[in-house]
Structures are given as C-alpha cells and as structure tokens.
Simulated assay, not measured.
Amino acid sequence: MKRILPIAALLLSGCAVSVTNNEVATPQSAQDALRPFYSALNTNLPQAAANPVLSSNETVTRFAFGSCVNENRDMKIWDVIAAQKPQAFLLIGDNVYGDTRTTNSADIPTLTASYRKLGSRIEFDRFRRSVPMMTTWDDHDYGANDAGGTFAFKERAEKIYEAFWNSSAEVKSRPGVYESRIVGPQGKRVQFIILDARFFRSDLAVMPYRDPGPALGWYIPNLDPKASVLGEAQWDWLEGELAKPAELRFIISSTQVITDAHNFEGWTNFPKERDRLYNLLADKGVSNAIFLSGDRHSGGFYKVSNPRIAKPIWDFTSSSLNFAFGKGDGGDREPDPRRTGGLWGVPNFGQIDIDWTAKTVKMSLRKDDGSVIEEQVVQAID
C-alpha cells in the first residue's frame, strides 16, 4: 500500500504527483517526483541541423563511427571523416560533455549548454548537414559520469537528447533511446542495432576503498541475478530485432562488450548480462554480428570465441574523436589476450568497408588525419 502524506508537505517539497481526496500519493522514485517540475519547463531546447536520410534501399559499402566529442575542442576530424565519403556516421556516446561544471540542477543546464555549443561548431554543422547520422548516448551526454538507471534526472536528459538529435518517433514513444534500422536490398541487408546501455542499467558494484587507488578502475562484477544492463523491455525488443533477416549486423554498445582487462565501465561489470547477450545470439543463430563500442578514449580491436556461435565475436572500439587520453599505443598498461593489437590513445574514428562480393568486412581504426592505425578483415557476412 502506498504511504499517504499530508498534501501541504508534498506541495511545499515540489514532489506532488497526484491528488485524491485532499491527499497526495508518495512518489515511488526520483523520476516520479520530478515529472511535475519537468512538465512546466520551457521546451525550447537546442536542435542540431537537419540531417539527410539514409535510404532503406541503399546498398551500404562504407560507413564510419566514433565517440567522445568534447564540444569545446578542435573539430577538424569532422572534415577528415567527410572526406572518406561514408554513407552514414554513427555517433555512439559522449557526444557532448554536458556533465562538466554541473550545477546538479534538475534541469541539467550544463547539458543543454553543451549541446548548444556543439550545434554552433561550424565543422560539426557542415558534417551534420551532409552525412546521415545515427546516435546513442553514453554517460557524459546522459548527464552524469558513469550513471545508470537510478540517475534522478534521466527523463530530462532524454528529452534534451531527443530534441537535439531529432530522434525518431520510435525512440520518442518509449523510455530510453534504443532503436534499429535495416538498410539495403535483400542479399545485402545491413542491420544497425543501437542499444541504450544507460537508461535501464543497474548500479555498478565498487571495490573497497584503498590508497593508492587501482590504476584500471574501481568497478567489480555485479553478480546480483536481478542486475541488468538493458532492462527487460529492451531485452525483449533486442530478441525481436535479432529474429529479423539480415546478411550483416552491427550491434552498437556505448561501452565495451568483450574485454575483461580493466575495471572501468563495460559489460565486464555485468558478466551474467554479457552471457545472456552471447546466449541470445546463439539461440537466434546469429553469427554475422559485429559489436561497435566507444567510451574508453582509446581505440582497438577485440575478439572472443563462443562454442555456440559459428564465427568469432568482434568488438571494434573507437574513442575518442577529439579527446584522447594518450599519445600512442598504451596497450602495455592494459594487457588483454582478447585484444588483437594496440590500445590507441590518439584521436581516432572507425571506418567499416563492406565487400559484398567477397563477403568481407574491413574494419579500420583511423587517425584524425585519415591515415590507418590498424585494420582487421573478417568474414562476417552470411
């Protein structure tokens, strides 16, 4: 039974959500409490420039992706990516750094200001007007570092996100920002499955404090059987998407999927959820999926085999577009048997080239001058 509090106390607190017979139902979450406040806010939110549409009938042979764009830093990489003539670009998280200098105000003014600044940058605006884009978010454009489903202001963050990126009706119709598209004619269909690893994610488990702190992060696996990355509604949706026919699939996760080599954020924090992900691929007979990820401010390639999946599973991480944390290969700091090469802490973007005749996918990690850092060619097409 819901606890009933005097109406005056809740009205003064700003937490009133419903009134019945001069009594107010206690909000069951921070989101419940904030909805009346958000409903009264000004809806004049920043919007990115109009974006061309990638035709559903177009045969995709090249697209690019990246993550971690600081709206205040150099933007030359947008012109470099455009020069590669990608048919689409996937911006997959930390699309702005809206949680810096935060006021902790419920309307997240720093997030709105960051989007407005990104939209004003000439290079980004030019790119946005010329290359079809798909997006998801990570923590810094979600509104708080490493935040998940308990983030109090997430519904406001979603509203800001959807306004700026002119999200599809599908995204706007439900909580979270996940969506999917299939592009290309039969025999050359590419499915883009764009996950939301923030809105529904359970809290992270943290190791006990120590000094000095760990070099590779504080998080440990959350083994609670109820812990989730995607939430049940998104899991059900993903199962339905993987049942759709496509010759090649890209599953976009803002955080890394395969690696266990660090204790920062990633699916390594939720090993039971990652097992569920692999098992879902196996149950659906999906062996033509490649993961694309970001978040790490370094780029690299990761590979793992699963006895129930016919082909190796790849995770191609590209991060950061203009906010890298190193100057070269930092792989020695983070040894990882699942990483196939270096861990490149330089500004970078990912490029995917699809050869439908050879049934190959070439994955290129590229510098901000367009030159290749590393490449992998895989037989991923069914």
Rank of each mutant, 00 (worst) to 15 (best):
R3S: 06
L5V: 12
L5K: 10
A9L: 14
G14L: 09
C15L: 12
N21H: 08
V24K: 00
V24H: 01
P27L: 10
Q28Y: 00
Q31G: 05
D32Q: 12
P36D: 08
L41N: 10
N44L: 11
Q47A: 14
V53M: 09
L54P: 03
S55R: 10
S56P: 01
N57H: 12
T59C: 07
F65T: 01
E71S: 10
K76Q: 13
D79E: 15
A83N: 11
A83P: 01
K85D: 10
Q87C: 08
L91H: 06
G98R: 02
G98C: 04
T102D: 13
A106G: 00
D107E: 14
P109G: 08
T110G: 04
L111W: 00
R121Y: 00
R121K: 13
S130F: 05
V131S: 07
P132W: 13
D138V: 04
H140I: 03
Y142V: 01
G143W: 01
G148H: 02
G148Y: 06
G149C: 05
F153S: 03
Y161A: 08
A163Y: 08
S167G: 07
S167A: 15
E170V: 12
E170Q: 14
E170C: 02
E170P: 02
V171D: 03
R174A: 14
P175A: 12
P175M: 01
Y178P: 00
Q186R: 15
R189A: 02
L195N: 03
A197E: 11
F199Y: 15
F199N: 02
R201M: 09
A205C: 06
V206I: 15
P212G: 09
P214I: 02
A215N: 09
W218F: 07
I220N: 04
N222E: 10
P225E: 13
K226Y: 10
A227N: 10
K244F: 11
K244T: 13
E247N: 13
F250K: 04
F250M: 06
F250G: 01
I251M: 14
I252R: 01
Q256N: 14
E265S: 10
G266A: 05
G266F: 06
W267P: 04
K272A: 15
E273I: 10
D275H: 11
N279Q: 15
L280E: 11
A282S: 13
A289N: 11
A289R: 09
L292E: 04
S293K: 06
H297I: 09
S298M: 14
G300V: 04
P312V: 12
D315W: 02
T317S: 12
S319K: 04
S319T: 06
S320L: 09
A324R: 04
F325R: 13
F325W: 07
G330A: 05
R333N: 13
R338Q: 11
R339Q: 05
L343V: 01
W344V: 00
G345H: 03
P347T: 03
N348S: 15
F349Q: 00
D353W: 06
D353G: 05
I354Y: 09
V361R: 04
M363L: 15
R366Y: 06
R366T: 04
K367G: 07
V372Q: 07
I373L: 15
E375Y: 00
V378I: 15
Q379D: 14
